[in-house]
Simulated scan of single mutants.
Amino acid sequence: MSDDVYEAFAVRYAEGDRNGAEVFIGGDPHDQPIPISYYIWILCNSSRTIVVDTGFDEVSARKRKRKISRPVAEGLEALGIDRNAVTDVIISHMHYDHAGNDGLFPNACFHLQDSEMAFATGRCMCHRALNLPYDAEDVVNMVRRVYAGSVRFHDGDTELFPGITLHHMGGHSRGLQSVRVKTKRGNVIIASDVAHFYAHLEDRRVFPYLDSVSDALEGYESVKRLADSFDHIIPGHDPLVSVRYPALSPLTKDWIVRLDHAPGTP
């Protein structure tokens, strides 16, 4: 495989249900529980392995009343990844479900937008409506990494490695970033929480926990421009991701799926 072409995986580690008002501004007319999934993503080739987001642990699961289906470490093991050997972790944003599991990657450099760190440690965190999705300990742990020289900050869009680019989006959080990765089927966009569900993109509806409605809507257009097609966009929390994409193996159905293969392929 070329140095700039990657295999890409979504690893589903937790699940839960939300009501319509917790998923869409204005609620949902069907007024029934909406399943939500929690993922991390893995990008790898013969030259490097990159982890996108770190998920949350059992302590956070109990605190937030979430259910861990398979711990993140178990998914890494199933992929044959030595977490101690991972050298680069991209944090899409610092909400508890994307930046927890402290210590899981002790030797990694963490890649973060300048504006996300400023947001998560600044005056906006005085407001409960904005600090609710953050965990103070996760933020403090990231500050410790900064002082240890283990964080690399990015200001806007940048090429991280050949075939992998970071794209500042904002909207859901001030420094939210998506990841574009070159795969054998084309450019796939790990949208993360630019869009929690396919329905957000399809219906131009907005998730209610956010920093800016206008930036969230503009983010939809940005990921569409960056992706080779709509089928190349991977939303952050949609259970359909683990249904539409082929499993790594029969043993990983609904758990680990391949994003470098087209949806619906065996």
Rank of each mutant, 00 (worst) to 15 (best):
Y134G: 09
V11E: 00
A21I: 04
L112H: 09
D3H: 09
L76T: 04
V206F: 07
F197H: 13
R205Y: 14
F9T: 01
P35A: 06
G103R: 09
I25D: 01
C109H: 14
R258T: 03
D82C: 00
D138A: 05
D238A: 10
P162E: 13
P71V: 00
V146A: 04
Y96P: 06
G16Y: 03
C44P: 02
I34V: 09
L112F: 06
H93K: 11
I36M: 06
G103L: 08
D215E: 13
A199T: 11
S173P: 04
V23W: 07
A129Y: 11
G122D: 09
G122M: 15
D138K: 12
V89G: 02
I40G: 05
G219F: 08
L79F: 10
A21S: 10
L132Y: 15
L240M: 12
D102Y: 08
V51I: 11
V223I: 10
T165Q: 13
T158A: 15
R83W: 08
A73G: 02
R225Y: 10
L160W: 05
D57S: 02
S178N: 10
K63T: 06
C126N: 12
H111K: 02
A108S: 14
G171S: 02
N101A: 01
D88V: 04
E202T: 11
P133Q: 07
K224S: 12
I36S: 00
L240D: 14
P250G: 05
E116S: 05
R66P: 04
V243I: 14
V179G: 00
G122P: 09
H30V: 10
M142L: 08
D114Q: 07
F110W: 12
L160R: 01
D228Q: 09
S2K: 14
R258M: 07
E58D: 10
V52Y: 12
D231I: 10
R123Q: 13
Y209K: 13
P266N: 13
D155E: 10
A78Q: 08
A262K: 15
V151L: 09
I164L: 11
E15F: 14
D135S: 06
